[in-house]
Design a protein around this nucleic acid. Structure first.
Lengths: 216, 216
DNA sequence: CGTAATGTTGACAAGGGTCAAGCTTAGTGG
DNA sequence: CCACTAAGCTTGACCCTTGTCAACATTACG
């Protein structure tokens, strides 16, 4: 569909001199914080996996492309979250910065004694992916968008004012919908007084219970 | 939609006297092999997680139910595969025997030194779940069924004759489709000479390339 | 052999996709 | 500072894929 343009961009990676940690590092030994411009690639499908990553600030999308350009975003990651597990030697997905962001990289291989520490973190990703399977596999478009908004709200501390780091296209590719459908549903929610849209990237949730009622 | 009937069944769990191992045990220390009748519950959503499980023979489905009965099967597991990771203390999904099967149970908590051993196994589940997200989120019904058949074939050693342990309903709930759609697509594949259906639970793959061409 | 579970097929409806036009916003350069 | 452009977003009209409902066929089971 699109989204290939990002790969044409230069991979702007410059080490961040001295980042103040906004997320607690996992106990994985030495690491390095890298700054990524929006849209820059963190790793690509097929690449040898060299690290695990933790978002310091900003947001990241992990996705796969089909031959004809269809894209499925399997996960968004925000501050504190760890990603890059999807490898056994080789990355099976692409990871890109959604917005400007800082990423802590823990070089692989991790020592066996650190495995116990990251296992629960990996399982979190697994549970998230499986939850998302339910959303995509069995929920209607309305339900998917409602679930998405509540998830974003929860990940921003539960405040009613939710800042979306990602475009409608990203949201669609995450929810298995088209950008038109996402847009229409947000408009409908707005019209029903469930949300306000101060601007395209900000959603204010006015009637959270109405969203919850939609989620299943 | 349905599928709740399974919970009404007695949980027939009887220890299997002396199972010959058909799957290599993972190095997780002491374990016990249990026999499960078809449809019996292995664990339920909300239960405290007490073990990891490895399929000895037979097949298992892991799923979640929505309030209105819609069901999403997040994974099928066959001989050798390990499941039950989706917990941090509590199971987030249901697991049931699809057919009669034997399950090796490794009591939790696992020792830290075994973590390194199961991490790659957990990551396999993660990659599988993420792949499935792509299938469900971005592929058409034809493509999903084709992908499913090829996956089943691969998991049975690549032989053209594929035995389906699960019903059409299970397949539908796994692929995010209705049973009617699954049935129709199999009929269409048959009519096009891509597969043969000696009986409802057996698929003979006649033109594998045609299926591959469909997968993306 | 009879009954229930499972699978198939058809007719029809609807949710969401496609295509297209127009609007808004942000970025760029004169 | 404003005009121009491009990207992103919204909205409408239409259509197609898939879901729904229903009847019937087949298989498994007691």
């Amino acid at each position: 569909m699109l989204a290939q343009q990002a790969h044409d961009l230069p991979l702007a990676r410059r080490p961040l001199a001295e980042a103040r940690p906004q997320a607690k590092p996992v106990g994985l030994g030495p690491h390095q914080v890298l700054f990524h411009d929006a849209r820059s690639e963190i790793y690509a499908q097929g690449e040898t996996a060299t690290a695990l990553y933790q978002v310091e600030f900003g947001a990241v999308r992990v996705y796969r492309l089909l031959a004809d350009g269809r894209r499925q975003i399997t996960a968004f990651h925000v501050a504190g979250e760890v990603f890059g597990f999807e490898a056994e030697g080789q990355h099976r997905f692409f990871a890109e910065a959604v917005s400007n962001c800082a990423i802590r990289a823990y070089r692989l291989p991790i020592e066996p004694r650190a495995a116990a520490e990251i296992l629960p973190v990996a399982l979190e990703s697994l549970v998230r992916a499986q939850q998302h399977l339910v959303v995509i596999g069995r929920q209607s478009a309305d339900e998917r968008v409602a679930t998405f908004l509540l998830d974003m709200m929860a990940r921003q501390g539960g405040r009613a004012q939710v800042e979306l780091a990602m475009s409608r296209t990203d949201i669609g590719d995450y929810l298995g919908l088209t950008i038109e459908t996402v847009s229409r549903i947000l408009s409908r929610f707005k019209q029903r007084g469930i949300i306000r849209l101060p601007n395209a990237r900000t959603v204010e949730i006015l009637r959270e219970p109405a969203l919850r009622a939609l989620c299943d």
